[in-house]
Computed example of a mutant assay.
Amino acid sequence: MSSVLNPYLSFRDNAREALEFYRSVFGGELNISTFGEFGMSDDPALADHVMHGQLTTTQGFTLMASDTPPSMPLTVGDSVSVSLSGDDLTELGGYWDKLVDGGTVTVPMEPAPWGDTFGMCVDRFGINWLVNVAGSGQGG
């Protein structure tokens, strides 16, 4: 297997909800393991929280996430952006529409000066997304 790089997102108590949302956006297979399943917490309140979740899509996307226990610090969204890029405006535009639902558009999805269509948003879970569609813009 070749090396791969994929985002790993950390949440506070809502990783399962976020992963299910991302599955509704991208489709794919979602596998979730909890702290309780692996005896990784003495706190019964954390038993059903996500120790590791992985969404794998037919398009080849892999997104991983977990819940951060209360004993560990967490600042959601400040240091990570997830980038989606390709050349299919219909496909990527569909993802964009779902990601901005309940979120905030920080840069509208429109033709960019470099000739692509580009947009940035923060989804309803505080995660920053960049969407770039190659060659679909009118910039120059």
Rank of each mutant, 00 (worst) to 15 (best):
G119D: 06
L130P: 05
D97Q: 13
S81Q: 00
L130K: 09
V100A: 07
L130G: 06
V82F: 00
P111L: 08
S33C: 06
V76N: 05
V131Q: 06
Q59E: 13
G140P: 07
P73T: 04
S66N: 15
V82I: 11
H52G: 04
G86C: 02
G103I: 04
D88Y: 03
R23P: 06
G94Y: 00
E91R: 15
M40T: 06
E37F: 10
L63D: 07
F118A: 08
G27E: 09
S136A: 15
Y95S: 10
S41W: 06
G139H: 03
L84A: 08
S136T: 14
G27M: 10
P69D: 05
M51D: 03
T75I: 13
G86M: 01
N128T: 09
W129Q: 06
A112H: 15
Q54L: 12
F118W: 02
L46W: 13
W114K: 12
D123P: 11
T90Q: 14
F38W: 14
A18V: 05
S79H: 14
G135K: 05
G137S: 04
V80S: 09
P108V: 10
F61T: 13
P111V: 13
R16W: 01
L30F: 06
E20S: 09
I32S: 08
G137C: 01
M51H: 08
Q138E: 12
L30P: 02
T117A: 02
T75E: 14
E29F: 06
A134F: 14
M51Y: 15
T90N: 10
D101F: 06
L55T: 11
G119T: 01
T62E: 09
W114T: 12
M109I: 13
G135H: 07
L19I: 10
Q59N: 13
Q138I: 11
S66G: 12
E17R: 11
S79P: 03
E110L: 11
T104P: 01
S136R: 15
G77D: 12
S136L: 08
Y95N: 08
F35V: 05
S24M: 08
M64G: 06
D42E: 15
V80N: 08
P108R: 10
T104R: 01
L19P: 09
L92A: 04
P111G: 13
S33T: 15
W96N: 00
K98D: 05
P111D: 10
G103H: 09
D123S: 11
S24F: 04
N128R: 14
L30T: 01
F26C: 12
V133H: 09
I32D: 08
I127H: 02
F61C: 12
L84N: 09
Y95H: 15
R16S: 11
T57L: 00
L84G: 08
P73C: 05
G77S: 09
Y95E: 01
T117Q: 08
S79V: 10
